Simulated assay, not measured.
Amino acid sequence: MSTPFTIHSINAYTHGLLGSMIGMFGLEPSQMRELVLDMHGQVTERLRAESIEYSDLRNALTPTSKKHEVAFIFDSTRVESWHYGLELAESWIPILSDLGPEKTAISVGDIIGLPAELAWSALHRHLVGPEDFPILSPELYFVTYMTNLTAGQLKKMDSELRNRTSAYLGYVDCTVWNPLKFAMLLPQVGLRIGSKIITTADEDGNANLPGYPFEASGFETIGVDDDQYSILLDHRLDNGVPAWAEDDSRIALSVLGGDFSPLSDGDVFANDLRITYLQESHGASLQRAGLFGIDKDILSGAVKEKISSGLVYNLRFIEGSRGSERVPELDASMFTVQVEFPDEEAGVKRYQVGLKYRAVDHSSEITTFF
């Protein structure tokens, strides 16, 4: 690799095109890398033509430790139209415009595939709303899912939704794992960046094909080729399926020089010098996760166990240098994985683990933990 790049997210998790191309056309890892980087270049140019920098989409597409992912839950039986998703959008789109995050990925859909008793139990435990929510067949609960919300934005949006529609039941904070995420196979309807909504486009370039009323709230809709969008601009809601995560990491790491081996097959390590750095620079996070001061092999094992079924984000190739001198020996291929550990208060907290990837032996060195 010779040209630096940063790719926030590659969706081989819920979108099967890249994976199917390996089998159909016998793509080699180097060909996959060229395909993804070429696609990334095209998406970057398309967005730049609309005065959007791809780099500005990072917080919408990747997990962040201090922001929330939230599922706003609606009772679709309280909507008169059969097109209840569109009708409910008339409630949440103006609120997004006025009170929501400037950068966010928005997905919508029904809760599907979860046994009714489990869905009701999960809602009873996690729904922030009335204690007596309606007991419905799970697919009658409609979800609008957003990323990158501050606590203040969440509070204001929740309050305003309650005022606008009786169909709104409350929200579930999906920042960390809960069983409802397994049933949220939600299509993304838009990626907000300021006053613009990026959507998929058809062959003629038409955006916002479902007809969501974004323009009525002052948004400009911008279309991107469907395959390019679904692979590079689609937020991956982690549904907790390890097999999907393995397929996902096989392709992601191939872009960093890997050979289609999943992340779970590789070694994870940290040498003594790195452990010292982590304890000095990320000690508070390690302490909360119960990892401070433990043996480096135990620390590496604990991290590997968590990242083996995690999703790979923020892939980047960084040219090595020493001052103004180019030093290829210092080149680095990096990526980030989200992990969850119990915290000191018997809850669960999300962390971002940064890793340096060595394609030659498919191993990863822990570099950051925050």
Rank of each mutant, 00 (worst) to 15 (best):
M157V: 06
M157L: 13
D158M: 07
E160Q: 15
L161P: 13
S166N: 08
S166C: 01
V172R: 12
C174H: 14
C174A: 11
C174G: 08
T175C: 03
V176K: 04
W177S: 07
N178L: 01
N178W: 00
N178T: 02
P179N: 11
L180K: 10
F182W: 01
A183I: 01
P187E: 11
Q188M: 13
Q188D: 13
G190D: 05
G190Y: 13
G190M: 12
R192H: 12
I193A: 08
I193G: 02
I193C: 08
S195R: 13
K196D: 15
I197P: 11
T200W: 01
A207F: 13
N208V: 10
N208D: 12
P210K: 14
P210R: 03
G211L: 07
Y212L: 15
E215F: 08
E215K: 15
S217R: 10
G218Y: 03
G218R: 08
F219M: 10
E220M: 07
G223R: 01
G223E: 07
D225C: 04
Q228I: 02
Q228P: 03
S230M: 12
L232K: 00
L237G: 11
D238I: 03
D238Q: 07
N239G: 02
W244V: 02
A245Q: 07
E246S: 07
D247G: 14
D248V: 00
R250D: 09
R250E: 15
S254N: 02
S254K: 01
G257R: 08
G258R: 07
G258L: 03
G258V: 07
G258F: 00
D259S: 15
F260P: 10
